[in-house]
Design a protein around this nucleic acid. Structure first.
Lengths: 231, 231
DNA sequence: GCTCGATTTGTTGTATACAATGGTGCGTGG
DNA sequence: CCACGCACCATTGTATACAACAAATCGAGC
């Protein structure tokens, strides 16, 4: 609409990222249908770069391209989300093993300060802000392994559960426990007690997953109600 | 060449799979350059479906598309391969935890029979055959978790190390140990001793990784020697 | 003979025209 | 009133023409 298509032509990668953001933030809600022409007009380019972006998104499972019909944002499949969470636990458990004896103390202190329960924000921060902070915590642990491939797999898994995970923090009462649980994990790492850190982190992930999935069910119901009256 | 392009038009997905196979089997060796037109002619289609396949392969890291220059098969980066092996261990360790107490006995017996050391083939089977069997073993464990997402991540990791892993079995002396080690893991699972199974499986993976990486170094050297005299 | 620059060539990036096909709605017949 | 079939339309799949640009090549000048 607001024509910013003259000087910088929108690249396929940028289209990909913007579409992914729209999907992950529910701007394009599950089940919605988009056509290549629509998006091409929207971004001020031809169908070619749009197709490239859509194919990437389809390959990653965010939407499905049905031949001669259109592109449909994939429905949220809670059973599948559960499976992604299981993969996440697999990766994060190994991450703790890898960094347990080796992660530098200063870096641990930095995280501890960042998640000090006494600094829990009183009036909840913006949801997206909180999600980014949370994902940052877990990715920081991954990065500390020095294994970029491992970190990128965790990032990939995170993206796939992001759409659900962000709902965890719409419930304000999850913010304080998140601070406390993150802090506890760091304390165990400082004490070089990897086993305890593992137990705590797994419980933390499962707790947040449960809350997020619960909220998702409600969200989906209301989303369907909205979709009901559109046509 | 042998014109089979009339009745069935080659789909982008098929192009993708065939190219991937060519890369993983060293038919297109690391560093080689291919152009879209070349491949389009080869498969008897236009550049469009070829581009689709190449973009998927690039997204998965198998090749890099350099603007206005060409597509280059990615070099093998042994440090990166190491990182993939670490992810593989993370996933497989969790897989053992998940199936430990639950995998049905008959399925375990099936695998035990399949990898009975006494049935080790005397004159080595074809390398690709052995690799497929090996990957099948590990994917069978993954499938037994009932977690399709987890299994697909393991498959993805396997694909990325396949190019190196297959070399493990060019050394005939690795075949017997593979049978023995697989068999041992299954025995521990039958005894419901998950912890022992984990230890054995991790050692097994690390051993095969070490051999594979060693052979890769030699292979790369000879490959470079070949490439030397091509132009 | 050597160096630097313009031109040519080859390759990917983008736009567009055309082909193939699934879905929809309308009309007809029972 | 309902069921069935046919034509039209919307949408993706494919081919091709054109644009943009990097590298190599060739030539001119010193």
């Amino acid at each position: 609409m607001q024509g910013t298509q003259n000087p910088p032509r929108v690249s396929p990668t940028e289209i990909y990222q913007r579409l992914k953001t729209m999907i992950l933030s529910f701007t394009l809600y599950p089940g919605a249908r988009v056509t290549e022409m629509e998006l091409a007009d929207h971004f001020g380019v031809s169908r070619t770069p749009v197709r490239e972006a859509l194919q990437r998104l389809a390959a990653e499972g965010y939407l499905s391209i049905r031949a001669k019909q259109g592109c449909f944002i994939r429905d949220i499949d809670l059973a599948e989300i559960n499976q992604y969470y299981e993969v996440r636990i697999a990766l994060e458990m190994r991450i703790l093993e890898l960094i347990g004896k080796q992660m530098p103390i200063p870096e641990l202190h930095r995280l501890a300060t960042m998640w000090d329960p006494e600094r829990t924000p009183q009036r909840g921060p913006a949801v997206e802000m909180m999600v980014a902070r949370d994902e940052g915590f877990h990715l920081a642990l991954a990065a500390a392994t020095g294994n970029a491939v491992l970190a990128s797999y965790l990032k990939d898994v995170n993206d796939h559960i992001h759409i659900v995970r962000r709902l965890d923090f719409t419930a304000a009462e999850r913010i304080a426990p998140t601070y406390r649980e993150h802090y506890e994990v760091i304390q165990r790492l400082l004490a070089r007690d990897v086993s305890a850190a593992r137990t705590l982190l797994e419980e933390h992930i499962r707790r947040s997953a449960d809350v997020a999935k619960e909220i998702t069910l409600a969200q989906l119901a209301s989303q369907r109600a909205k979709a009901w009256k559109l046509p």
